[in-house]
Design a protein around this nucleic acid. Sequence first.
DNA 1: CGATTTAACGATCTATATATTATTCAGGCC
DNA 2: GGCCTGAATAATATATAGATCGTTAAATCG
Lengths: 202, 202
Amino acid sequence: MPLENLDDTAITILNAASRRFLHYGFKKTTMSEIADDCNMSTGNLYRYFPSKLDIAESFVRVLREETIAALRAIVSDGALTPAEKIRRCIRHKFRVAYDRFHNNAKAYELSGELIVERPKLAIEWESAEGLIIAQILAEGEERGDFFVGDATRMAKIIQDTVFRFTGPTVIHEGEYNDIEEELDAVLELALDGLKCRAARNR
Amino acid sequence: MPLENLDDTAITILNAASRRFLHYGFKKTTMSEIADDCNMSTGNLYRYFPSKLDIAESFVRVLREETIAALRAIVSDGALTPAEKIRRCIRHKFRVAYDRFHNNAKAYELSGELIVERPKLAIEWESAEGLIIAQILAEGEERGDFFVGDATRMAKIIQDTVFRFTGPTVIHEGEYNDIEEELDAVLELALDGLKCRAARNR
DNA sequence: CGATTTAACGATCTATATATTATTCAGGCC
DNA sequence: GGCCTGAATAATATATAGATCGTTAAATCG
């Protein structure tokens, strides 16, 4: 994890801020608390981050990079069929969303607050994940498993399909296993659609 | 439209309240304003509705009954294939959601406020629509167009699939035609899945 | 006696004054 | 001169007093 291109002091600040964000939430941690934790003045924080919100953005960005890395690992796994890669990617997204909502309230809140102020980030991240899905779809089309057409467009369609389970704003009610089972059913129907079109176009 | 089983005075109250809800929103209309519009006292309102929120519930319930009626009309149309019925039902739901969000801010707000206080209503309405979808699916299975299995369960899966476009909390960005086109693509993939399964099971 | 009013109560909103906090910048330190 | 500090500033949050509003129930009307 390169933590982007931040120098040592910035990483110190980011770590101190992250600890407080996770314990007390974004709004309840103050810049002077972060500065105290780092044995520096508040003014100095602004030499490394333009604003408090930018510290939060870096914090969430690190979390996102972890999930992106996990998705890439799935894509690189040569033992998996394209369909299985998509299943695992989507399940992973759901697991992260569910876990953050149920077991990590402060991180969930922080994501929400950040997206309100920086809506472009949600779009940026959704299209980053879209690229990964598109890659798998293209692989599936090459093997003859799927009929995809424009892979980027079809990736968006898959993301829309599972939005209820993986979207940022959704509240998950009920047991984890029950919801995952329903997600699997939704995704399987779409995958059958892709397979069906491949068979039709052969 | 029977307006449920309300007597004349209750309907007078509901109409007066509805007008104010649509013009000024739920929070900004007061019980005394509603009472004044009806030439009665505030206390008397409570002979016909247990609370202000219950007036709002009746108001939204009327709107819902209109959409349910529209969906039923689609189901009864003998000239349509089951697949076409589903397309039209889902498009109708989207159109209503989009229109309310963009052209009827007060009604959109009111729905949101009501659902926060009465979450069970959302579930009630979603399952009412689910029944209609299930009916179409069963018809499609009988004709051999679809393989459905448990129609109620499959209806839920279809609802999940298009949730991003028809769900209650979703904000629709972009042009109507662009979004509807994407919705069509999402739904068509799921329908192809159902058709594919029918062909496979034949 | 059923239908309605009116006054009273408690909860909720509003406006305002106060205090905290994010951010800046004129300087100090090494 | 690069790095940092800490007081000053402007924006935001908190607290509170006052007003408004939803709700209730005893009293009134027909």
